[in-house]
Design a protein around this nucleic acid. Structure first.
Lengths: 215, 215
DNA sequence: AAAAAAATGTACTCTATGGTACGGTCATGC
DNA sequence: GCATGACCGTACCATAGAGTACATTTTTTT
């Protein structure tokens, strides 16, 4: 349990401390994320987080001087998931239908997983009081997905694979079709998760309807 | 300012009192509604409502013994708006396209007005902690609209005005198309209200796309 | 006019919670 | 091995807000 690291590293002197600190910060964010997503902003207590963390309140405050600051960092961390979402596979060499079905199924799967729903609820619930929160979320989440889709659709239109039209509108239509019905039910808690295979099935239907108009 | 009522009414003795009480209860609900819609459940304080009401806390508590109870009644009142929504004009004798455009525009207008958005935010934000809330809202709001649409579509299909298919799916598709893009932006606060005429314009587009598939 | 019911204002209790202070302990780094 | 920074536990402060108590006043009923 001693430091198993060569003492040669002299570029970052207090390296062991810093590493531990990062680790701890990570743990804090993880716990806080759980709390915020589960109980909302107002429903989350710093004392609760501290307790759940095992450590003392003093420690927590030494990392985050206020609830607001902690909330900010948690948001940063949570929207990271959405940033990765950008990595969604939009195979430009596959046939349009295949590419769209794949991306829609992926989109639907990600947007309907419990954590995404919890985040969505949190954002929507607090959007009235933290306008910034809504903006940040939108720009990092829906907006990027929209751009991605829109760009792909524009290219497909240019290639002649889709009929010429406003690609922005088309992208909106496609994502709306994807979420139709399911998302709202999830958001208000009428269902807890998507039935298995439903993402794939519905993606096919959505794309079919989309192509009926755009091809 | 004396009682200008004939003293003959002996069926409901203390009528003056009861009337006043109903009035007061109404005022309470109105103020509470404003608070809850604006600040969410946790952000609303009974003391604040009492103060805003002008009266004293004792009075407020004599009507509602707890915040939860008050919240419940506020919800009842607010979802009434949605119940009326059922009165939406679905002209069964008009051409399908006209009927759908009308109902979609109406739907979009109602769903995007600030109070509806505030309610939606409230419900979604608290759905995790008050599962009942989500259910009540869903049943009184989206579900009824869905049934209405679905029934109309089924009839149109039977008449041969729309191609035979699952009317439930079709209804979902139509309402999703209606809300495409706009609703999400409103919910996260990216925009505050719909641009004028946008409801009408978008309703036409949505119905056009819908009919491309279902006719 | 007198009694009953309801409303008011004020002051209070109790609990939760954000945030602080501090003395002791343990790991880290020199 | 010793100084230092991080951590722990715990007790604490201040404030907000739910809910209560009560003495006083207003309104309604009879």
């Amino acid at each position: 349990m001693q430091r198993p690291e060569p003492p040669s590293g002299c570029g970052d002197r207090p390296t062991r401390r810093k590493a531990r600190r990062e680790e701890r910060r990570d743990a804090i964010l993880e716990v806080a994320k759980r709390y915020f997503l589960e109980h909302g902003y107002a429903g989350t207590t710093m004392s609760g987080i501290a307790a759940s963390l095992g450590g003392s309140k003093g420690t927590l405050w030494s990392y985050y001087a206020s609830k607001d600051l902690l909330f900010g960092d948690v948001l940063d961390r949570v929207t990271e998931v959405f940033r990765q979402q950008l990595g969604m596979a939009l195979h430009r060499d596959a046939p349009v239908e295949t590419a769209l079905v794949t991306v829609c199924a992926e989109f639907l799967t990600r947007l309907t997983n419990p954590e995404a729903i919890a985040l969505h609820r949190l954002v929507v619930g607090e959007a009235g009081r933290f306008p910034e929160l809504g903006r940040i979320f939108y720009e990092r989440g829906p907006q990027r997905v929209h751009s991605l889709l829109s760009r792909y659709i524009a290219e497909a239109m240019a290639r002649g694979d889709l009929t010429q039209d406003d690609p922005d509108v088309a992208a909106n239509v496609l994502s709306a079709l994807c979420l139709a019905g399911h998302h709202q039910k999830l958001m208000v808690g009428m269902i807890d998760c998507l039935p298995p295979d439903e993402a794939e099935d519905w993606a096919r239907k959505a794309v079919a309807i989309f192509l009926r108009t755009y091809r």
